[in-house]
Simulated scan of single mutants.
Amino acid sequence: MEKTCKHLKSYLHKFHTEDNPEEFLFYIDRKGIRSQMSIDNVEKFVARYGKKAQETSTDVPEHLYPHMWRHSRAMHLYRNGMPLPLVAEWLGHAKMDTTRRFYANADTTMKKETIEKATSDFYSLFSNEYDVDWEDDEDLMKKLYGLK
């Protein structure tokens, strides 16, 4: 995504001035020695900045954790038409079943949109656009019941 690339380039420019592909992307610096950032440290950052974000937006969930972004992005891709096998590949899952069980549960919105898309040709029949006053039409009723 363009915006993500922009943020990543900015981060790399600021924190990775030397081109060293062996260096950790996210790191801590202790006494001049860079080492891998721990999962606990990442969770603390997410919690800290999540609380700040909650002060300005009620849309931010109360309990944030790093894996939430992974799941949210996978669902976003799936909802916007990425086929499930590609979502599984993007996530790096060895088995499709993992993706299906944990990431790709269709939500109510997806189900509604799918039903509307599948029945869109018939939808106009059920709207108020057409006069379907057949109750008093004896000939039509006989035809519908195969009696005429």
Rank of each mutant, 00 (worst) to 15 (best):
M1Q: 07
K3H: 07
C5W: 06
H7C: 13
K9N: 11
K14V: 06
T17V: 11
T17L: 08
T17K: 10
E18F: 03
D19E: 11
E22Y: 07
E23S: 12
E23L: 09
L25F: 08
F26W: 06
Y27N: 09
Y27F: 15
I28Q: 14
D29S: 13
D29F: 03
D29V: 04
R30W: 06
R30M: 08
R30T: 09
K31L: 08
G32P: 03
Q36F: 01
I39V: 03
I39C: 13
N41S: 10
F45E: 01
V46N: 00
V46P: 01
A47H: 01
R48E: 00
Y49D: 00
K52G: 01
K52H: 07
Q54K: 05
T56C: 00
T58M: 04
P61K: 05
P61I: 00
H63E: 06
L64P: 02
Y65I: 02
M68T: 02
W69D: 05
H71I: 07
S72H: 06
R73L: 08
A74R: 02
A74Q: 09
M75H: 04
Y78C: 05
R79Q: 09
M82K: 02
M82Q: 05
M82E: 12
P83W: 02
L86I: 13
V87H: 07
A88P: 03
A88N: 00
E89S: 14
E89K: 15
W90L: 10
W90F: 12
L91D: 03
K95Y: 08
K95F: 03
M96W: 00
R100L: 05
R101A: 11
F102Q: 08
Y103P: 13
A104Q: 10
A104S: 14
A106M: 15
A106D: 10
T108H: 04
T108C: 01
T108D: 10
T108W: 15
T109C: 04
M110Y: 00
M110W: 01
M110E: 10
E113V: 02
E113F: 03
T114K: 14
T114C: 14
T114M: 11
I115K: 13
T119D: 12
S120K: 11
Y123M: 11
N128W: 05
V132G: 10
E135F: 05
E135C: 06
D136G: 09
D137W: 11
E138R: 11
L140I: 07
L140N: 03
M141F: 05
L147E: 13
K148G: 15
